[in-house]
Amino acid sequence: MSSPHSSVATPQATRLAPPLAGARNYPAQKPAEVYLFGTCVLDLFFPEAGMDAIRLLEREGIRVHFPQGQSCCGQPAYTSGYTDEAREVARAQLALFSHDWPVVVPSGSCAGMFRHHYAELFHDEPATLRQVEALAARTYELAEFLLEVCRIQLDDRGSPIKVALHTSCSARREMGTHVHGRSLLSQLGQVERVDHDHESECCGFGGTFCVRMPDISGAMVRDKTAALAGAGADAVVSADCGCLLNINGAFEKQQQSLRGEHLASFLLRRTGGKSDGVQS
């Protein structure tokens, strides 16, 4: 770990926690072009949310590029302990972003993978590491990008509604996305954000965790859906597709009418954009 006090050169040196991260610096200008990294879950299960993200960005006057060679950030293998496989998949994504445009990711945990974990994957490949660090510096979660880089101004055209916001854990902790999500929602005049019980608690998805530990994960998602349903919200939004898959699957199984919707679709629809954000 980088610190003036540890001997960085020796891998065996006792590690210090990384220095406290200061607030992220955002570019003063909105860029003309960006990449969108769609993420694998969104690609298959929430493609409309990806399109809504593209439309939101385009409405901000940004040209969006979607490299067709993209697949997955590598997180499923990485968190399962298959580091080599994760590294190769990560390497394949690295090759996609040759221009220095920002990379916008409509899913907090995948953005976090780019921003925080690629450096660990390539820690002993100096040349790749430099590439990874450059990528991390220009990777943004969608809500963060809209708020902090586009400085978006949302004009709510919808009728009054109560909304509960769920933020994935890694997004919350690695990217601070709950702050961005709340802040975007607060721009919508007719939207009242309601808190739900144990809001910061995990929904129980956790990638392969939900199938490896079905009892525990099931208990967690039941508590989460109960909290969301009990919050008196008309709608549930989240910017994280893994959580949405989990939460919506549970709502459906429980035969509840509530469904979570991707933040991008919600924002676009509320502000008069045409969304094909069919709730999955």
Binding site: H5, S6, Q12, T14
Partner: peptide, 11 residues
């Protein structure tokens, strides 16, 4: 396990 490492300074 600590061979070749230097202790962390007392700051």
């Amino acid at each position: 396990s600590l061979a070749g490492t230097t202790p962390i300074a007392d700051d």
